[in-house]
Design a binder for these strands. Structure first.
Length: 480
RNA sequence: UCCUCCUUCGCUCAGCGGGUUAGAGCACCUGACUGUUAAUCAGGGGGUCCUUGGUUCGAGUCCAAGAGGGGGAGCCA
């Protein structure tokens, strides 16, 4: 007999038809004549109730059925006599597939701390919370590809191992097959990477952008969606050493087209979650609301989760220049009252996260896109404005997350690019292939990077990035 | 990397200003209960109080170092 997914069973009318369900027991409740199993198979946040009548099934069979055990049930799908569900299965046979010894199985039908579940990341999929996050994560991945496919973008697999360490997006993980106990040296006593696997020094990618640019300057509109690695010693709720990044790159787009695309994409993806993950979002909404009610008034969310998502879908993002932002911040109450840890003094320094949070959460109360940053605090490939002081960079700032997107119009003029590279000590000879696109048929083009897990934080309302990726990689942690 | 807090049965947490046999809820086991909704009620078992060293007549409690973890900051997506 063929198994039917629980999500499908829950949508079906109970008409005494014989069905088979397989899954993991969430809870077991019993009384003298009858027992109830809440069964889950990952297809939905909802469980199906299995009714065990001791006249039909021996009570001994239930001896090893505890939370976490896997079972196969064959029985009749009937309308439920109880209140919490519309249908249930009256079991005719119950087969224990795998027991879960309650003395050692760590996931119990109760609230666990997120820290505890992180240490049990191999089993945390078995909880309502991580089931919901996992389904939403899948939907968002699918939504990303659908968005770009519908717009005629091509997906490009950019390399995960790269030999260019010129980009400066962050510290890199070295990739090598050299014997670390016996490193080959050249005449200058330096490590001789000529003898390494690729014949040169190589690393895990920190961004697919440069390669995506190469593709965009032929295919016009492309995007990458792949793993990205940063060997920075960042210990925060917003950083991972291994994360997934979405990087579109578009020929013939200027910075304004770039911002339009970023805004459209974020709204599309949030709406995609609202439309496709209703049950899971409602669960997360409830959870966050409960959590909120236990916080002091001034730390509570202004909007509840689903309202916050709707708000982003329905409202235009605010756009302003870095210079305008500095003016607002300089004249802001917290700055005058010296409540910022880093006072806003002059033009030219980067904004601290407290400043970004003030703009988004207090001043505008909307997502904000900042443009035209000072050139000295941004990367070499960003297009210089006519003022010679600022570049056509844009950052999208979100409530509670901070920077969710960083992007720019790229410098397409060869001479200007070379000048910036020499100013910033980027070796041109390693980047000959990048320069070639500016030599041959260069065009204005733009792109941005979206940290997928940061989007997941926003959509799920979770507060730690380690909880929105199945197996987080952070400093001192690569378990599982 | 810096600042700060935490580590007590399987889980979540109490534990006073050092002083008898270290507590509770959940889970587990036993029993009760006419179909329960993280069922309920009664009883039971379960602890190298993170590790090492120190102070003390006496340390879960105080001090030091180490390990692991949380939160904040920096770097960024």
């Amino acid at each position: 007999m063929k198994r039917i997914k629980i999500s499908e069973l829950l949508e079906t009318k109970g008409q005494n038809q014989e069905v088979k369900a397989m899954g993991w027991v969430r809870t077991k409740r019993g009384s003298k004549n009858v027992a109830f199993l809440a069964l889950n198979d990952g297809s939905s946040i909802k469980n199906i109730q299995v009714v065990i009548d001791f006249d039909k099934i021996s009570i001994d069979l239930l001896e090893n059925v505890h939370s976490g055990a896997s079972v196969a049930v064959v029985g009749k799908l009937v309308p439920s006599q109880g209140k919490g569900q519309s249908v249930e299965i009256e079991a005719d046979t119950l087969e224990l597939l795998g027991k879960a010894d309650p003395d050692s199985f760590p996931i119990q039908p109760k609230k666990h701390s997120l820290e505890f579940l992180r240490e049990n990341a191999h089993l945390r999929f078995r909880t309502n919370l991580f089931g919901a996050i996992t389904r939403i994560r899948h939907a968002m991945i699918f939504g990303v590809h659908k968005f770009f496919n519908d717009k005629g973008f091509y997906n490009i697999h950019t390399p995960i191992i790269t030999a260019s360490d010129a980009e400066g997006a962050g510290e890199m993980f070295r990739v090598t097959t050299l014997d670390l106990n016996n490193l080959p040296r050249n005449e200058a006593k330096e490590i001789d990477y000529k003898q390494d696997f690729f014949g040169r020094s190589s690393h895990l990618t920190v961004s697919g952008q440069l390669e995506a640019e190469l593709a965009a300057l032929a295919m016009a509109e492309v995007y990458t969606f792949g793993p990205t690695f940063r060997a920075e010693n960042s210990n925060t709720v917003r950083h991972l050493a291994e994360f997934w990044m979405i990087e579109p790159e578009m020929a013939f787009y200027d910075i304004h087209d770039d911002m339009d695309l970023a805004e459209e994409m974020l709204q599309y993806l949030v709406k995609y979650a609202l439309d496709n993950c209703k049950d899971d979002l409602e669960f997360l909404h409830e959870r966050r609301t409960k959590e909120n009610s236990q916080k002091p008034q001034n730390e509570r969310d202004a909007l509840e989760l689903i309202d916050r998502l709707n708000f982003v879908v329905e409202n235009k993002f605010v756009r302003l220049t870095y210079t305008e932002a500095i003016d607002i911040l300089k004249n802001s109450k917290p700055n005058k009252k010296k409540q910022f840890q880093y006072p806003v003094e002059g033009w030219g320094t980067d904004l601290q996260s407290e400043h970004e949070r003030y703009l988004v959460e207090k001043h505008f109360k909307k997502p904000v896109i900042l443009i035209d940053y000072p050139k000295d605090i941004k990367a070499f490939y960003m297009k210089l404005n006519d003022d010679d002081k600022t570049v056509r960079a844009m950052d999208v700032l979100f409530p509670q997350i901070g920077e969710i997107i960083g992007g720019s119009q790229r410098e397409e003029n060869l001479e200007k690019l070379q000048k910036r590279m020499s100013e910033m000590n980027i070796p041109e000879d390693e980047m000959w292939w990048y320069m070639d696109t500016r030599k041959f048929g260069t065009v204005p083009h733009s792109g941005f990077g979206l940290g997928f897990e940061r989007l997941m934080l926003f959509v799920t309302g979770m507060s730690n990035i380690r909880d929105v990726i199945p197996f987080p990689r952070t400093p001192k942690n690569a378990e599982f």
